[in-house]
Computed example of a mutant assay.
Amino acid sequence: MQIKDKVVIITGGANGSGAALARRLVSEGARVIIGDVDRKAGEELLTELNQNNKVNAIFIFCDVTNFDHLSQLFDTAQNTFGGVDIVCNNAGIGKKNEFYDQTNSWIKIIDVNLNAVIKGTQLGIQYLKKRGGGVIINTASMSAFYPMRYAPIYSTTKRAVVGFTQSLRDLKDTDKIRVNAVAPVFFVSNLTQGLIKSKRHEESTKKLGFVPIDDVIDAFIRIIQDDKLAGDTIAVTKNDKSKIISKSSL
């Protein structure tokens, strides 16, 4: 799929990889709907993206655990730009020792990292069908394959995202909708900084390392442009920027 003139929804789009992806897509001629709970960062990004009185982007406050908020992203894309072509279920949170801190903070991690991805995909399918097809990209993590002992719930959600994505491979044939995932190792962001402040993290960084955020964004772009990819996960590591992890669904 070409990017120019396409309409893209990005959750968690005000910071980190979401903001970097929004910048790249707008630079290549797309229009984006950015959903995020960080209103200040979202509005600042909007000012940056909308230059010369041209509306390239719209920011909407969106808590992805509120499905009415998620629906508003799609309704806005439909009413403002005429539809949706690409959906990036990118919002994610993490917290070290989330399973062991004797609170229920792990429930929110599942709601954001997994349940919202499922609902965002359901909505994506509904709206992409109106366009005759499209692309959905779910943000996973290499912790799906190398689970982090200090963040077992986070790792579980990312493994689930990979399995969920693989299970939707047949949508390419039935509805011309390609669902794929991106699974990066660590890169500099608010989320990773929150996860890695631990001595235990030293082992993880030695094993997986860090990658430039541009490598992560390149993986998103590859998925959009490569019409052969469906149900696949692109791993982004320091040794391989775009390894395809693919398994057949039953």
Rank of each mutant, 00 (worst) to 15 (best):
L123E: 12
C88F: 05
S27N: 15
G209A: 06
S105V: 05
G18Q: 06
T121E: 11
F59N: 07
I217A: 08
S189R: 04
K4T: 13
N66S: 14
D101M: 00
R222S: 07
A235N: 11
N52V: 09
A140Q: 03
V37K: 12
V211H: 04
T157K: 02
V87W: 00
V55N: 10
L73A: 10
F74C: 11
A181V: 06
E202M: 06
I34Y: 05
S248R: 14
Q78S: 15
C62A: 14
R24C: 01
I234P: 00
N56R: 13
A151F: 01
K54L: 13
F59H: 08
D240H: 10
T76Q: 13
V87R: 01
G92C: 04
V84I: 15
T233S: 13
N15Y: 06
K206T: 03
G16H: 09
L229P: 06
T11F: 12
D226P: 08
G132C: 11
A91W: 03
W106L: 01
S143A: 15
K130C: 04
S242W: 02
Q193Y: 15
V185W: 01
T47A: 14
S249D: 06
D175C: 05
P147K: 05
D170G: 04
N138I: 05
I33H: 01
K40Y: 13
S155F: 11
L70E: 06
K176E: 10
K172P: 01
Y154A: 02
L45H: 05
D232V: 08
L195P: 04
I93S: 09
V7Y: 04
K96M: 06
I223C: 04
V87H: 01
A219Q: 07
K206A: 10
R39S: 14
L73V: 11
L128W: 06
M148G: 00
T121S: 14
V117I: 15
R31M: 14
K54E: 15
N180I: 00
Q2P: 08
N89R: 11
G16C: 13
N56S: 12
L168T: 02
A144Y: 07
V32M: 11
S71H: 14
A151S: 13
H69C: 12
I136C: 00
P147E: 04
G120S: 04
F67M: 10
C88I: 07
G94C: 01
V211L: 07
A77G: 15
V8F: 08
S198R: 02
E44V: 02
F187K: 02
S248F: 09
Y146H: 14
G132N: 12
Q78D: 13
V8H: 09
P152Q: 07
V135P: 00
T237R: 08
V216K: 03
N190I: 11
F67D: 02
L114C: 02
I136H: 00
K40D: 14
G83R: 04
Y100G: 00
S249L: 11
Q126V: 12
I109G: 02
I196C: 03
T192H: 12
G18H: 09
R31W: 02
G29Q: 13
M1I: 04
